[in-house]
Design a protein around this nucleic acid. Sequence first.
DNA 1: CTGCAAAGAGGCGGC
DNA 2: GCCGCCTTTTTGCAG
Lengths: 229, 229
Amino acid sequence: MAVRASARYEGRIDAELSLSDLVILIRDVERGGDGSCLVFDMQKGIPPRNWMPAGSQMQRTNDGLIFTHPQRGERLEIFIEQIYFEQALVPELGSELLKLGAEREFTALIAQHLDKLGDNLALAGIEYRTSAGPVDLLCQQTDTGQAVAVEVKRRKIFPSAIWQMRRYLDALRHDPEFRQPPPRGIMVAPSIAKPAQELLRRDPDITFVRLSYQDLKALNQPKRKPDDV
Amino acid sequence: MAVRASARYEGRIDAELSLSDLVILIRDVERGGDGSCLVFDMQKGIPPRNWMPAGSQMQRTNDGLIFTHPQRGERLEIFIEQIYFEQALVPELGSELLKLGAEREFTALIAQHLDKLGDNLALAGIEYRTSAGPVDLLCQQTDTGQAVAVEVKRRKIFPSAIWQMRRYLDALRHDPEFRQPPPRGIMVAPSIAKPAQELLRRDPDITFVRLSYQDLKALNQPKRKPDDV
DNA sequence: CTGCAAAGAGGCGGC
DNA sequence: GCCGCCTTTTTGCAG
């Protein structure tokens, strides 16, 4: 549905959308949808300007449309001035999305290439759960038995990630299985912000290894020469 | 545009979208759009299944559509099996969205009601920048001069927010202006998760004040009785 | 530009 | 259900 309309949302915040040219996607429950509604600017923006969650109820009025979600206390009113076009249809085939290269695969690849992180590392656990949360990879030095927590970021590392690692290490220091010798940490990411690097400079327990998903994928596909495209 | 199609995205990750019933929103630059493209499942989901950012170039092929964004190294191919409908139009009126009740307003309201956080508090700064990041509100005890960092969350507090506060306090302890007497912190939010509460129980420097945007709005509009609706 | 954090975040997996 | 964390996060803001 494409319209010229304004809108008002009340619920988790209050919001007013000015009169503008909009595309509205309605997932009508009666037509196999989940009861959600999305309102987009026709010109720009990835996120919707307004929306209602799955399970909303729709009412048509003289002015336009009203969506309500009583359980969540949300309400979206759309005041339609002009309808450019409207089309209803019943979807039959749902979609499935397969993603490769998200953090899970990145972590799995690193687990296959622990030598890139250092010598004598053996995998002790994936998503190992500490009291401070799950560590992406837990390794152990085969020579000393030292636990090595590995935190993988697909994007640039910021200071909060360093603190996250510090919490994991602190939790491991209270874990009877890994407390001795004192554990250390490795941050793996394609890049690191300067303030985060400064934190590491003063922290003898945590190191940074620069590695991207592309780097690791290349290791698994070593047959292509660099000039092949 | 509503279609039965499959899609393949290559760029920041690799992704494959199965053959399914989809709604495609194309912001064609030639028609006043920003060059972005959004692909939605007709049935469900707030976020798009696939998308391309603003500034992408579109090509029509026999199979369907190809979007490329060379600068960002992204590519989205859509293989169309059936077109349910297609409609092109030129948007004329862009939208503006006014939001009330987001964290900025919440923080501003708290600044007007510091008495709700404790006695003898005076505002020293909004979004006060420490070396660890900006503190929402910085206050000072008028009696002792103690700095009081206030962190405002519009939603439930989780442990990471407590650690965020600890970093701010640590930064303030190194700030010549506020290091003495040792600063303390107040977390303001409508609720707090149990693990976060447990952290606070052991932390004498940080306290939690339960307060929601609705609560504060009510304080500014005290004329209505509770039974008015 | 980088750094940093909010978002009406949504969505996923684990417990 | 709560909790923790990732996201092709996007968006906004300040230095």
